[in-house]
Design a protein around this nucleic acid. Structure first.
Length: 282
DNA sequence: CCGTTCCTGGAT
DNA sequence: ATCCAGGAACGG
């Protein structure tokens, strides 16, 4: 599941590989992955343009081309961008192929939840509207403790898990990092936001920043589908505290970790380090 | 607020 | 054969 650290790794690799290079050909195998059609420009108008900049906001990736063209990518669950040699065979579930003057990049997505959107940078479309609703990036400069507490007042009845997954509260967190952050903050994911104390918020704020910083530094998490542009793996899974560690000993207290459902998501936690709220049944 | 929907592959 | 994985839009 590409979350902020994984999308940042992809953005960085695309930036290093293709910025300053011209798109010479485009193959669309599955047009349904394009959002906003038919009003948006047809993908073919990208041909001949040069990639100028890359940006990431939350889990959205923006590629800015010449002629004021902007390609927005959301990988959702199983979306991948893969670097290929020009003559490499087309792997299964490849939906769009970008042929640059120095190599080929394929967008593939087994479950086809991922979406691409082409627009002029001055225009507003589906993805740009979604991006405008995003909360701050989880970095020291942009995410303040005061913002978290203000958002908590707006959503007092949410569980911590739902709060962290809400992209308008903080941008870019998904199921893996929501669990990791909750564990580092020693807070049960099913605790209601309104019940958290000032000390909890301080720890939560710090945990969000430190877990995301660590995950970005490690190139994200490669548990199942996510891999880098060049096919290599991220490394966060090697230090993950709870995610995919159901039944294994807690790294702090050796208590076996428990898997349950919170906010409709698979959720792993330590029953000792993260005491469950009253009435919670695993 | 929660549940459903979109999809496919892997687990059971 | 059926269920489950979960990001985000959508409906009740």
């Amino acid at each position: 599941m590409p979350e902020l650290p994984e999308v940042e790794a992809i953005r960085s690799a695309i930036d290093r590989t293709f910025c300053g290079h011209q798109l010479i050909h485009l193959k669309v195998h599955h047009p349904d992955v394009w959002l906003g059609a038919p009003a948006t420009p047809t993908p073919d108008i990208l041909v001949g343009e040069t990639l100028l900049h890359t940006y990431r906001r939350g889990k959205y990736l923006s590629l800015i081309f010449t002629s004021q063209l902007r390609l927005i990518v959301h990988l959702r669950m199983t979306g991948q961008m893969r670097l290929r040699l020009p003559d490499d065979p087309v792997s299964t579930h490849t939906h769009v192929q970008f042929y640059f003057d120095n190599g080929r990049m394929d967008f593939r997505d087994v479950r086809r939840f991922g979406r691409l959107e082409l627009s002029r940078v001055e225009d507003t479309f589906c993805s740009t509207e979604s991006i405008e609703k995003l909360g701050p990036e989880p970095t020291l400069d942009t995410l303040t403790l005061a913002h978290l507490r203000q958002e908590a007042k707006r959503h007092p009845n949410l569980t911590l898990k739902a709060f962290l997954l809400n992209q308008s509260v903080v941008a870019g967190l998904g199921n893996i990092y929501a669990d990791e952050i909750s564990f580092v903050a020693n807070i049960h994911p099913a605790r209601r936001v309104r019940q958290l104390k000032p000390s909890d918020w301080k720890l939560l704020h710090h945990s969000i920043l430190s877990v995301i910083e660590e995950a970005v530094a490690l190139g994200g998490t490669s548990f199942s589908d996510y891999i880098h542009l060049d096919g290599s793996k991220g490394q966060y899974q090697e230090v993950a505290r709870v995610y995919t560690r159901k039944g294994q000993p807690c790294l702090e207290c050796q208590t076996p970790l428990i898997k349950t459902r919170v906010a409709g998501r698979g959720t792993v936690y330590c029953p000792n380090c993260q005491p469950a709220p009253r009435g919670f049944k695993p």
